[in-house]
Design a protein around this nucleic acid. Structure first.
Lengths: 192, 192
DNA sequence: CGGGACACTTAACCTACATTAAGTTTTTGC
DNA sequence: GCAAAAACTTAATGTAGGTTAAGTGTCCCG
């Protein structure tokens, strides 16, 4: 297993000594996921934050009619998880699964709390991560509340051009909050 | 001006020495807002995080038809701001204003960055704040994508019982993502 | 290389919620 | 204390997007 992508991600915001790096690595776990395999199911308690090393993961909720609603996609270099479940260590409402064969690096929440004490720089790293995440969710909510579906689609294409190539259309439909049928209709009626 | 509420808020997650407290307080600014007065307008660069000491603030976006969409309410003891604008120090998309006469304590982003270096405990405090915020936005998005309006209203009442008392109905309508007319109709057709 | 799952499309019909507009009640500022 | 603004209601009409269903294409994997 290879931690280079994760270490590069960490190095964007904090600088570690070799010793700190080694300690950090000693706390990491690796999991390989087959396409469609779950990392987390509704009702599970999230173990801790997960970093995508290869593949693509997504988190989603399931409504009472059985429809999926994608909350986040995570290509390589991204973090994913059910934050409410992780913080409170309570059963969560989200599913996390792999859209293709993937490799995930993750850390137990308890080990992360230890890491924060041993190497306080990591407080900074995860603060910055969480702040960026807040900014993303704020703007997602703004888009959702104030733009029609076609503009949310255009926004997604602009913001994640590489994901558009890789994802099945129905996953994108779910992310922007419409049915696959409606997205298909939109795309065939509209010149973007 | 009185920092007790803010210091109590900080003390929930980290413990400060008197000296650290004094330094923190030395960085704080206070602003009194009249009802309807803006703390931030679209296009402004957010100065830094703001803590509500009294009153109620809200953040919202304005769509191209002139409709407001409430992103967050902040009663006393809550933090509010346009996170994307604050992080990138770029003009933002959100308005922040006071729904009643209010008092806000805020800190310049540059001073906050200094504080993180001088008193690293604050990294932890703001990490926890941001993580809780992520959890809230995740669950808000789940609700928005998977529940009908009447259940989002019921959820709001359950989660923020004290706010329901104080807020005009049209503000709640905007938060749950419907028009005031539709919320009015729902409430008069439905026994909750 | 064949069959079954999965992705995408089309189309008819449906509904939750928006828009517009007018009227009533409550709050606010001077 | 009164006029004006803001909040709330009601109702007729409109529409973005959902639902259902059937058909076509495609890609696995055995």
């Amino acid at each position: 297993m290879n931690h280079d992508l994760l270490l590069a991600n960490v190095a964007k915001h904090i600088t570690l000594t070799d010793e700190e790096k080694a300690y950090f690595i000693s706390l990491l776990n690796v999991k390989k996921l087959r396409k469609k395999q779950y990392l987390n199911q509704e009702g599970d308690i999230a173990k801790g934050p997960s970093f995508v090393n290869s593949g693509i993961l997504r988190s989603y909720s399931l409504d009472k009619n059985g429809y999926e609603h994608v909350i986040q996609f995570a290509p390589p270099g991204w973090w994913i998880g059910d934050m409410a479940s992780m913080i409170k260590q309570e059963p969560g409402k989200l599913y996390v699964d792999a859209l293709e064969d993937s490799e995930v690096i993750w850390i137990w929440k308890a080990d992360l709390d230890k890491l924060f004490v041993e190497v306080p720089k990591f407080e900074r790293f995860f603060r910055i991560l969480a702040e960026n995440s807040v900014a993303t969710y704020q703007s997602r909510l703004v888009n959702y509340l104030s733009l029609p579906a076609i503009e949310r689609y255009a926004g997604f294409c602009k913001q994640y051009p590489s994901l558009i190539q890789k994802l099945p259309q129905k996953q994108v439909a779910s992310y922007i909050g419409v049915t696959p049928e409606f997205l298909s209709k939109m795309l065939n009626n509209t010149v973007i």
